[in-house]
């Protein structure tokens, strides 16, 4: 039975005259990877901060794993992991000491064994005793993720986890995320990288505190279009087609005057940018 890990209804949060969240309604199912996609300032981090209880909303309701994230944060936090946008690590301590410190916030049996497991999972074994200030950005990201995972949370919040990370490490991180989902963890990840959204089960597109669309990447892509430009007699003619497999032969006919054909198929980025630039759509 699929249950909702997160249920948000009519959430509002303003900073002065800036509406960071403007009537957000969203649900996240248990066991899915849910993406929050949008430009800087869209409200992604604000939504995450409300859901982890560090920020109170102005109105509306939020339920995370059955708890009010603000009023019941003591009960909620043992079940939630959080990887912040900034590294939030003690750079003068080693990776192992950092992870141990954040682990000790919760009672964990066989703590040192658990540290060994999570350090190995994140590929940090060789340098676990070195101070973090000597790490590359990618290694720091891995330590940050390890700190979020060490107490085996049911729900994981990742705030732009692959910012500043090279493609190879990004792929490695997503491999870890998929492994966690197989173990039953629900993941909420915020990103402004369109190609990352393709890894998610569902993506929520945000702009100026509003949700523009909330759908699987495939269904979002299906909203896209294909433009076909045909050069004929030195002139270009562009047409938008929805099913070019069917329509293209008609367009082409049997016409020897056609010198060139160009097909542009919308990527997910094109669909999202069009949504953002057009304004609010009903999800």
């Amino acid at each position: 039975m699929i249950t909702n890990a997160i249920q948000v209804t009519g959430l509002h949060k303003a900073y002065g005259h800036i509406k960071a969240l403007d009537g957000i309604d969203v649900t996240v199912q248990e066991g899915e990877i849910f993406g929050l996609l949008g430009a800087n300032g869209a409200g992604k981090s604000t939504l995450i901060n409300v859901l982890i209880g560090t920020l109170a909303s102005d109105s509306g309701s939020a339920e995370v794993l059955g708890f009010d994230p603000r009023k019941q944060r003591r009960q909620l936090r043992p079940q939630v992991g959080y990887m912040p946008q900034h590294q939030a690590l003690y750079e003068d301590l080693s990776a192992r000491d950092n992870i141990r410190f954040f682990a000790r916030a919760q009672p964990i049996d066989n703590l040192e064994q658990r540290l060994d497991e999570v350090i190995e999972f994140m590929g940090l074994t060789d340098r676990q005793h070195d101070p973090v200030y000597g790490y590359s950005g990618g290694m720091e990201q891995r330590v940050s993720l390890a700190c979020a995972l060490v107490h085996k949370p049911r729900l994981l919040f990742l705030d732009e986890p692959s910012t500043g990370v090279d493609p190879k490490l990004r792929e490695s991180l997503w491999g870890h995320f998929r492994e966690l989902v197989k173990q039953g963890v629900t993941i909420v990840v915020s990103t402004h990288q369109m190609d990352e959204a393709l890894h998610c089960d569902r993506v929520c597109v945000m702009r100026n505190g509003e949700i523009l669309a909330c759908d699987s990447p495939r269904d979002l892509l299906a909203r896209g279009k294909v433009e076909v430009t045909i050069w004929k007699d030195g002139q270009a003619q562009t047409q938008t087609v929805t099913n070019y497999a069917k329509e293209l032969p008609q367009l082409l006919g049997v016409d020897s005057a056609i010198s060139k054909i160009e097909i542009h198929e919308d990527t997910l980025e094109d669909v999202v940018l069009r949504l953002i630039n057009k304004g609010k759509h009903h999800a």
Binding site: I52, R74, P78, Y82, A88, F102, A105, Q106
Partner: peptide
């Protein structure tokens, strides 16, 4: 300023 305080709270420290 290094955001470790937020991380402490979310981890469960009071």
């Amino acid at each position: 300023s290094t955001h470790t305080l937020v991380r402490m709270f979310v981890s469960g420290y009071d």
